[in-house]
Amino acid sequence: MHSAKAKLLTLLLAWAAAEICRRMHMPVPWMLGPLLATALATLAGLPTCSSLRLRNGGQWVMGASLGLYFTPAIVTQLVNLWWAVLAAVAWSLALGMVYADWLYRSCAGRLRGVPDESLRPSAYFAGAIGAASEMTLLAEKEGARTDLVAASHSLRMLIVVLVMPFGMLLAKSWWSLEAVDVAPQASAMSFTVAGGAWLALFTVAGGLTLKLLRLPNPWFLGSLLVAIGLAASETAPATVPTLLSNTAQLVIGVSLGVRFSPQFLHTAPRWLAHVALGTLGLIAACAAFAAFLAWVTGLHPATAILGTAPGGMTEMSITAKALQLGVPVVTALQVTRLVAVLILVRPAYHLWGIHRRDGAHSRQP
């Protein structure tokens, strides 16, 4: 099928799924509906297709939308929580290494055609929490099986994105989720065509700047940083219309769903089974840490859970926005973790390898 026609039919399928999920009152319908529909259609062998330009546009819109929540009061709150943000980063890095070690030990010698020298880096970069595409590229440089790394991040993303919104809804029986503050400027600001044009111009410039600098996720991070600057200085010219935000969530959901090709299920079933089991363990461990973080900081538990969840930065921030669960804190925690992972994960891998070799030598008679 011609790619343009495939993209159009995929978008129509995604829109229908989003509308059904909205009518069913599902959480985050404009992302979860398209994600589920396109994933199932792709696994069934249908010719689904995602547009990279639309995905980048969706990330640009969501970056601007989320950045407008960072009012001066919110920025002050985040500055006072700097130590909690660093603690969350350290926790994520340590947890990723523990998970990687468990994944390696569980699959070593049990995957046909995967020698130990490629399984070790595969497990490590598959266990890193965040920056899926960047982890795949780094894994390739270390001799890992990139198909295993990419498959593990895709599966973990799917599980986390599905579990967290429904988990937050179930948590309503214990917490009053409506009590989480939403930045007043983000909700009260109006939209005008002129203001929207200026906002688009500024945020596109931010995205292009980060793209020229070859930084990861440039359209999301560049737009986010510019919008944060505008909101924090109280000079934001407009808000992002709900329709545009919903459309951005839809194309992001599609971009996640099309990853699950029929070949995906044939990618080392034992590996995928352990990734799925390990992901549930990661969610539980992060939730326990989030409960502790909420207790010592006074943050709402739901906000802390989404901020430390082992999912994607964009997806967890969208979930926080849709459910109104402390968007700035969640976004700040997720963005800081992404930056830390990108900077530290490769040096940490070499330390991890040295530690494992030293441990092996110490056990020899």
Rank of each mutant, 00 (worst) to 15 (best):
L32V: 05
A84R: 00
S152R: 03
A288W: 05
A248Y: 03
N217T: 13
L282G: 01
W82E: 05
P184C: 07
A108D: 06
R23C: 13
L32G: 03
L40K: 08
L170E: 06
R112S: 04
V180F: 02
V296W: 15
V345Y: 06
A151L: 08
V61I: 12
G143Q: 06
L212C: 08
N217I: 12
A39Y: 11
V251A: 10
Q334I: 05
L342P: 13
F166C: 11
L277W: 08
A39W: 12
V254E: 03
M24G: 15
R55G: 01
A94R: 02
G353D: 11
L201P: 08
G278I: 14
A304M: 09
I305C: 05
T303L: 01
P310M: 07
A231C: 05
W60C: 09
A320S: 10
S317I: 02
F202P: 00
A273R: 13
I343R: 13
I129Q: 06
A41N: 09
I343C: 13
T209C: 13
A179M: 03
L13H: 05
S187C: 10
N56Y: 12
Y69F: 07
Q334R: 01
W83E: 14
A87E: 02
F70V: 11
L177A: 06
N80Y: 13
A227Y: 00
R23G: 15
S176G: 11
L342F: 12
S122M: 08
A4D: 13
V98S: 12
D147Q: 09
S3R: 13
R346I: 07
S106Y: 02
A322Q: 12
S152N: 06
L32I: 07
A123I: 09
T136P: 00
M313D: 04
V251F: 09
V85M: 10
G311D: 04
S176T: 14
G307N: 02
L137R: 10
Q249T: 02
K211N: 14
V98L: 14
A236F: 00
L52H: 09
L68R: 01
G229T: 00
A6S: 15
T239K: 11
R356L: 11
T48D: 14
Q334D: 08
Q334E: 08
L210E: 03
G281D: 06
L215R: 10
V193T: 15
L43M: 11
V254C: 04
R105G: 14
A360I: 11
A151Q: 08
T235E: 04
G207A: 12
Y104M: 05
S50L: 14
I354Q: 10
L8M: 11
S3Q: 10
M168G: 04
G45M: 03
A144W: 09
A100Y: 01
K5Y: 07
R23N: 14
P218I: 01
V327M: 02
L119M: 06
F220K: 02
T192W: 15
S51R: 15
L230H: 02
T48P: 00
L40N: 08
S233I: 07
G130E: 05
R120Q: 12
A268L: 04
E134F: 12
F125D: 03
G222D: 01
G67L: 07
V75K: 00
